[in-house]
Simulated scan of single mutants.
Amino acid sequence: MITPESPDVGAARPGGRAWVSRVVLLLVAVISTVIVVRLVGQVDWEAVWAALTHLSWWQPVVLVALVLVRQILLAMPLRFFIRGVTFYRATINDLGATLMSMIAPTPSDIALRVAMFKSWGVSAAKGLAGTVMNSLTFYIARFSAPLLGFVLLFAVGESPSYRWFELLSIAVAVVILVTVLLIVRSDPLARAVGTRSAQVVRRFRKTVDPDRWADACQRFRADISERFRGGFVWAVASQAGMMVVDLALLMLCLRFVGVSADQVGFVWIAIAYLFAFPLTVFPLWGIGIVDALILAALVEAGGPEVEAAAVAALIVWRGFTVGLPVLLGAIAVLMWRREVATTDVTRGTPNRI
Rank of each mutant, 00 (worst) to 15 (best):
Leu25Phe: 13
Ile31Ser: 14
Leu128Phe: 04
Gly265Asp: 09
Thr343Gly: 11
Val184Leu: 12
Trp268Ala: 12
Ala50Asp: 15
Trp164Asn: 07
Ala155Glu: 08
Val340Ser: 06
Ala51Arg: 05
Leu254Trp: 02
Ser135Ile: 10
Ala309Val: 05
Ala297His: 04
Asp262Pro: 08
Val34Leu: 14
Leu73Lys: 01
Gly258Tyr: 07
Val233Gln: 09
Gln218Glu: 15
Ala51Asn: 01
Met133Tyr: 09
Val67Gly: 01
Ala18Arg: 12
Trp234Asn: 00
Phe143Leu: 12
Ala47Tyr: 02
Asp344Leu: 10
Val36Asp: 02
Trp120Pro: 03
Thr342His: 13
Val114Leu: 12
Ser159Leu: 13
Ala141Tyr: 03
Thr280Gly: 09
Val175Asn: 04
Val37Tyr: 08
Leu181Arg: 10
Thr53Asp: 11
Phe80Gly: 04
Glu300Phe: 10
Arg142Pro: 01
Asp211Trp: 06
His54Trp: 08
Val172Asn: 03
Trp49Arg: 14
Met76Thr: 07
Leu327Ile: 13
Ser21Gly: 09
Asp262Gln: 14
Thr91Ala: 07
Ser21Lys: 11
Leu284Val: 14
Thr346Arg: 15
Phe117Ser: 07
Tyr162Leu: 12
Arg318Cys: 04
Gly127Trp: 00
Leu252Glu: 00
Ala124Ser: 15
Gln71Ala: 00
Phe154Met: 07
Ala125Tyr: 06
Ala18Thr: 10
Leu55Phe: 06
Gly231Tyr: 05
Phe165Gln: 12
Thr33Lys: 04
Arg347Val: 07
Gly41Ile: 11
Val85Ala: 09
Ala270Pro: 11
Leu74Tyr: 15
Glu305Ala: 11
Pro304Leu: 05
Asp44Cys: 01
Ala173Val: 02
Val62Trp: 06
